[in-house]
Every structure is written in C-alpha cells, then in structure tokens.
C-alpha cells in the first residue's frame, strides 16, 4: 500500500489542475450570460458558475463523475442497465468489437511472426509493410475499410473489429518475432544434438520462450484494439458504442457526455490491460518464470 500515496498525490494534483483550468475556460460564457441578464458576478459566484454549467467548454471533474454515475450505476439501480442511455450498453458494443478485433489481430500477428521467423522471404518482405501500415493514419483508412466492406454487404461488428485488428496486430508481430528469436545459439545447438525436428524446436523451445514477450505485446495490443474500435465507430455514424457517444456529444455540444464516454473508454482499457496482466502472472508463474 506504500505505492498508493504517490498515486493519490498525482491524482489530487491533476484534479486540482483540472478545477483550476475549468475557471478560465468557462468564464467567458459565464460573464456573457451575466452581462445579458444585466447582473455582475462576484468572483466566488463566477467560479461556482464555471463549475456547474450545462454545456461547459471544460466540464469540472464532479460533473463528469455525476454523468458517469447517471449513465451507469444509477441506471443499474433502476434496473435499466442496458437502456439506450446507458454507458454500459455502449461500452458493451465497443467491448465486443474490441475483443473480436483483438483476437483477429493477435492471431494474425502470431501467424505473421511465425512466418517472419521461419521464412526468409517473409523476413525481408513483411516487416516494412507492417511498419508502413502503422504509419498510415487510422482515421484516414477506417472510413475506406467501412465503405469497402459495406459494399461487400458486411456490416455491424465485423468492420469495427477489422479496424481494431488493423491496429492491434502490430505489437504482437514485433513482440512475437523478438520472442521466437529469443533462444540463443546454445539452446538451438542443444536441440540439434538431439536431432530434434523443426516442430520440436517450435513447440518445446521457441514458443515457450516467447511467452513473456507475447503477454507484453498483448497488453499494448488490446489497448490499441480499443482505440481502433472507437475510431471505427466515428465515421460510420454509428448510434451505439463509446465512439458514437463521443461523436453525438460533439454534434450537440454535450461536452460532459464526451468526457464521460472518454472516461468510460479509459476505464475499459485499464480493465482489459489489467486482466491480461492477471492472466500473464498466472501463466508465467505456472511456467516457473516469475523470478
């Protein structure tokens, strides 16, 4: 619990900074309104107003928290956890596409890495393309993927998952190539002295040796998958999902809604990364590699 204090200190500093920033950000609107109503605001009144506007430029933390609670916990208590207004519903849509994209991306990443490690032509050819694929802004390519798939009659979760996979395969390729190449010459020579087959080498040496790299890569790639899904929700005019919440929030100037969707996405990402970390600890411990 020693680590809790520094973390809380940083959180407190950020919250303080946030409240402080909300004042100048929202003050013009407050003054404007006051001028129209022909009243003069004292400083405390002004500050109180900047922290409680309906459509602030920068919502104060407590407004975001209240909105988050209103769209999740409060609805659960009312028994309407999966209503259209509920962030849980939206988060679920985003999550399902993220998980599908993550699975596709991870599988593709592992296959590509195996190809790169075992095939010289792929070793020379694939990596530059993989790197190039990540330098193209996802925002530019996402609408194209959706339009192309739509013309093929593919809609719904699949296009989002593919955009998500597009972002999430890359860390897995890089991590797995490094992991599969982790065994040194002595370890490979040892297998050679047993006249081991290529299959032995892969299953008994390269694959287990790559596990720590695999988990590290997956932690990065699942966060990337979530970003990919949210980006995929933006240009589709999707009505469901966290990305759709952010988009509609920005259409209607609902800044608080944007921020609470943003926080929901961040919480979701943290939970996913944490979950993989948990699985990692379990499996590596069983493999005797926790030291």
């Amino acid at each position: 619990m020693k680590s809790l204090l520094p973390i809380l200190t940083v959180v407190a500093a950020i919250v303080a900074l946030w409240y402080a920033a909300a004042v100048p950000m929202n003050a013009p609107w407050a003054r404007d309104q006051a001028a129209r109503a022909d009243v003069t605001l004292t400083t405390p009144e002004l500050i109180a107003d900047t922290w409680s506007q309906e459509r602030p430029r920068l919502p104060a933390p407590h407004q975001v928290v209240a909105d988050l609670w209103g769209a999740t916990g409060a609805l659960v208590l009312e028994g309407r956890a999966f209503s259209k207004r509920s962030l849980i519903t939206h988060a679920w849509y985003t999550l399902s596409a993220t998980l599908l994209g993550f699975v596709i991306g991870t599988a593709a990443g592992v296959l590509l890495a195996v190809g790169i490690v075992y095939n010289r032509a792929m070793d020379m050819a694939v990596m530059p393309w993989a790197i190039a694929s990540q330098t193209i802004p996802i925002l530019a390519i996402a609408p194209m993927i959706i339009v192309v798939l739509n013309s093929l009659g593919i809609q719904g979760i699949i296009p989002k998952a593919i955009i998500s996979a597009y972002l999430s395969f890359f860390p897995v390729v890089v991590g797995m190539v490094k992991g599969l190449r982790a065994p040194g010459r002595d370890q490979l020579d040892l297998l050679a002295t047993y006249s081991a087959t290529g299959g032995n080498e892969f299953w008994k040496l390269r694959l287990p040796a790559s596990m720590p790299y695999f988990f590290t890569a997956m932690k990065i790639s699942i966060a990337a998958a979530l970003v990919g899904t949210i980006v995929g929700e933006l240009p589709t005019g999707a009505v469901r999902g966290l990305g759709a919440r952010m988009l509609s929030g920005s259409y209607y100037g609902q800044t608080i809604q944007i921020w609470s969707a943003l926080f929901a996405a961040a919480i979701l990402a943290a939970a996913l990364v944490g979950l993989i970390g948990l699985v990692e600890r379990r499996i590596l411990k069983r493999m005797g590699m926790q030291a």
Binding site: Q187, A196, K204
Partner: peptide, 28 residues
C-alpha cells in the same frame, strides 16, 4: 544418439522443472 553434449552455460529451460529439463531429450 552417440553422444550427449554439455555446454558452458547450463542452458536449462526456465519454464521446465529440473525433471522436465532432463525429460526434454527423452521426449524428443
């Protein structure tokens, strides 16, 4: 299988127990 080879580094697989490591050539 005329010879066994011992390298300078023990080169045991960290994810296998000692018995598991000794089994490695036997499995192969």
């Amino acid at each position: 299988r005329a010879y066994g080879y011992v390298f300078q580094a023990a080169g045991l697989y960290p994810w296998r127990t000692i018995a598991g490591n000794i089994k490695l050539p036997l499995e192969i």
